[in-house]
Amino acid sequence: MSEEKRSWLQRLKAGLSRSSSRLAEGIGTIFTRRRLDDASLEELEELLIATDMSLGMASEVTGTLRRTRFNQEVTTDEVKAAIAAEVARLLEPVAKPLRIDSSLKPHVVLVVGVNGSGKTTTIAKLAKQYRDEGLGVVLAAGDTFRAAAVEQLRIWGERTGATVVTRPQGADAAGLAYDALADAKASGADVLLIDTAGRLHNKADLMAELQKIVRVIKKLDPAAPHSVLLVLDATTGQNAHAQAETFRDMIGVTGIVMTKLDGTARGGVLVSLAEKYGIPVHAIGVGESAEDLRPFEAEAFAKSLVGLSA
């Protein structure tokens, strides 16, 4: 990965363009300039579905077009712009960056998600960014289940200059989180990022374990965790709804980070998530390097989704 600084839009576009090119191409072939009729609207709906947008949301978005433009002659760009505008409108309310309140000393961020969604990597990227801003960062290696997960975070700590609090594999994650918070408080750190083991949201015992972590850290700081980040893999399909709902209900998710948006998956599921649950979307991961974790911006995301240059 080249280290040259690109604007975040370029990065997002580079990440998303491969993915959106299919949608863009699709739209291109439907409408070079043609009448917006039932058939073309259905094709359009299918292209949205192919981004993992839920069926209901896809027909809602095309429904807007139907109401405003039905039977009109339209160009590709007009259709793209109209869809992007609608998607941006739906996403605008949830596009809120994660703001670290360093007066909290520390701002406690609990990071959760299903296995393999990219929690540890996201934490590493956040740690790098916060360290670059000059914040004191403590990492709690709370994934005490997966083999070598602790080791993985420890290496990231070394690379970013963040303190890492660890316990051996198999140790109690809640106890570790407690210790990490005590350490972070004592050292006057600005941010504490708590990693957790990946867990499927339908496993009651594992979700209870997560609730225990929350309960235990509240003993040291009743307001903690100040943020609970749900890490969602962009290649996940409609199950993202169930994940968001369960994690929200069980531990009160305050924000979403969507990872792996540099794949051909397009994260259309974010649109229905926004409408259904209204959970803020903080950031998206569009590549391997730390700068590739970017704040989520509704308009840019919407434009990239349909392949429009912003």
Partner: peptide, 28 residues
């Protein structure tokens, strides 16, 4: 989700797969 088709196609065309392991079937 929908990306499964792209993943399968690329790996199948570029690398050639002989079988699939489907993980996390214990999810919902």
């Amino acid at each position: 989700g929908q990306d499964a088709v792209n993943v399968a196609k690329s790996f199948s065309e570029r690398i050639g797969v002989t079988g699939i392991v489907l993980t996390r079937i214990d999810g919902d």
